[in-house]
């Protein structure tokens, strides 16, 4: 394709370019013709009378590149802002989820978010925890009760012998 265009450019005369430029300024050129003009004008060593046209085409080309760069910067910036906004939103959601949705108490099937009430109920539940020492004390007291029973039975036996 490029080679084809190169061959075409080699066959193009300055008069052809004049004619194409005329068409271009009237807005009648096709995309192929504009491409041909652009390629021809970007060549080295073309007559100086085409300098103005060359500058015009060069200007448009430069403007096109700048706009592409601008679009890229805008796209990158919008990506960053989207990610930053998402993170900020998630942080807020996460925090509110943690502080509000995780602090509650259910009493007889009804949900309360009153922190004082929740803490009070938590402390009530904690007060029901048995310390390990309590269990040992209980078992020991049971042993003592067993000893008492044995003593009572021995006393009964002694009474019977008498």
């Amino acid at each position: 394709m490029k080679l084809k265009q190169q061959n075409r450019i080699e066959n193009v005369t300055s008069e052809d370019i004049d004619r194409l430029l005329g068409k271009y300024y009237e807005g009648l050129t096709t995309l192929e013709e504009e491409s041909l003009l652009h390629t021809w004008l970007s060549q080295m060593g073309i007559p100086s009378r085409f300098d103005a046209d060359k500058a015009l085409f060069g200007y448009f080309s430069g403007q096109k590149n700048t706009s592409v760069k601008k679009v890229n910067i805008v796209r990158i910036a919008s990506w960053f802002s989207a990610v930053a906004a998402s993170l900020a939103l998630l942080f807020v959601i996460g925090n509110s989820f943690n502080s509000n949705n995780s602090n509650y108490v259910f009493i007889q099937g009804k949900k309360y978010t009153n922190l004082t009430l929740a803490k009070e109920k938590a402390l009530t539940t904690l007060s029901l925890l048995h310390e390990p020492q309590d269990e040992v004390r209980k078992s020991t007291s049971l042993l003592n009760e067993g000893d008492k029973l044995i003593q009572e039975q021995l006393n009964l036996l002694d009474g019977a012998n008498l």
Binding site: S99, N103, A118, A122, T124, T125, L128
Partner: peptide, 22 residues
């Protein structure tokens, strides 16, 4: 009675999560 508490509410205890059910 079910209690769920987390993070700053439990600062006194240095817990990050407390759940209990009675």
């Amino acid at each position: 009675v079910m209690v769920s508490l987390s993070n700053e509410v439990l600062d006194d205890y240095k817990f990050s999560l407390f759940k209990s059910i009675n």
